Simulated scan of single mutants.
Amino acid sequence: MRTALRASGPGIAFPPGLKAGIPCEDQGMGGHASYVWSYLQVMRHSGILDRIAGMVVGVPREIGGLEPGASPTLAEIVLDVLGGRDIPVLGNVDFGHAGPNLPMPVGVRAGLDARRRTLSLLEPAVGPRATTGPAGRAR
């Protein structure tokens, strides 16, 4: 699993000044449903889920325990870990390391409307490239 607000692996790098965010979770390929639950629990216990404004969850691909008809489902795992938090959750979004591989920029303001099933970038993901003059001085 990868999120737009953390590095890979269980160590989470959440920007310290960030008051709210939208973790984008890409389960990638391989692994097991228990890994998804564990990563979400790390986010919960570290306080990240108390500071987010919404969550986007990718399409599970080749994850043991999440096959069609399996229980619990990915939606059940996510909602269980979120508890009673009243935040929008958008699931089965094709982005990340598997499938269509739609990149999700890190640190860009985004809008999430779960009712309309939309995720919008509210600012550019890239900016103009800085050029430098002699000896690395900006022009």
Rank of each mutant, 00 (worst) to 15 (best):
residue 50 D to F: 10
residue 55 M to A: 04
residue 111 G to H: 12
residue 56 V to I: 15
residue 137 R to F: 11
residue 78 V to K: 03
residue 139 R to F: 12
residue 121 L to Q: 08
residue 18 L to P: 04
residue 104 M to I: 14
residue 139 R to H: 11
residue 134 P to L: 10
residue 36 V to E: 00
residue 25 E to P: 00
residue 64 G to P: 01
residue 106 V to P: 00
residue 107 G to M: 08
residue 12 I to L: 14
residue 84 G to T: 14
residue 26 D to L: 00
residue 10 P to W: 03
residue 22 I to K: 01
residue 136 G to D: 11
residue 15 P to S: 08
residue 99 G to Y: 03
residue 114 A to Y: 05
residue 46 S to N: 14
residue 118 T to I: 12
residue 14 F to W: 14
residue 91 G to P: 02
residue 128 P to W: 02
residue 72 P to K: 08
residue 84 G to E: 15
residue 99 G to H: 03
residue 43 M to I: 06
residue 58 G to P: 03
residue 132 T to G: 13
residue 50 D to P: 12
residue 135 A to M: 09
residue 6 R to N: 09
residue 110 A to S: 13
residue 65 G to K: 03
residue 117 R to Q: 15
residue 19 K to E: 13
residue 8 S to V: 10
residue 71 S to N: 10
residue 26 D to K: 01
residue 10 P to C: 01
residue 100 P to G: 14
residue 41 Q to H: 09
residue 23 P to F: 01
residue 56 V to D: 01
residue 38 S to R: 09
residue 33 A to V: 13
residue 5 L to A: 00
residue 108 V to F: 07
residue 106 V to G: 02
residue 109 R to A: 15
residue 125 A to I: 04
residue 12 I to G: 01
residue 107 G to A: 06
residue 124 P to Y: 06
residue 30 G to P: 05
residue 130 A to Q: 13
residue 2 R to E: 03
residue 81 V to C: 11
residue 97 H to G: 15
residue 62 E to H: 08
residue 136 G to T: 08
residue 63 I to G: 00
residue 120 S to T: 15
residue 55 M to I: 10
residue 50 D to L: 11
residue 51 R to W: 12
residue 26 D to R: 00
residue 76 E to K: 11
residue 103 P to N: 08
residue 22 I to W: 00
residue 113 D to T: 11
residue 44 R to W: 02
residue 126 V to H: 08
residue 1 M to E: 02
residue 23 P to K: 01
residue 7 A to R: 12
residue 90 L to K: 05
residue 129 R to L: 15
residue 58 G to A: 07
residue 68 P to E: 12
residue 92 N to V: 04
residue 92 N to Q: 15
residue 119 L to N: 03
residue 118 T to L: 11
residue 119 L to M: 13
residue 101 N to P: 00
residue 28 G to P: 05
residue 61 R to S: 12
residue 8 S to K: 08
residue 136 G to E: 08
residue 71 S to D: 11
residue 16 P to M: 04
residue 2 R to S: 01
residue 105 P to Y: 02
residue 49 L to I: 09
residue 88 P to F: 14
residue 65 G to I: 09
residue 49 L to D: 02
residue 110 A to G: 10
residue 34 S to R: 13
residue 8 S to T: 13
residue 30 G to Y: 04
residue 49 L to S: 06
residue 11 G to H: 04
residue 87 I to N: 07
residue 111 G to D: 14
residue 13 A to E: 11
residue 29 M to V: 09
residue 108 V to K: 06
residue 118 T to G: 10
residue 114 A to K: 03
residue 58 G to E: 01
residue 23 P to N: 02
residue 1 M to Q: 01
residue 77 I to C: 04
residue 101 N to L: 10
residue 106 V to W: 01
residue 26 D to V: 03
residue 85 R to S: 10
residue 45 H to S: 15
residue 119 L to G: 02
residue 112 L to N: 07
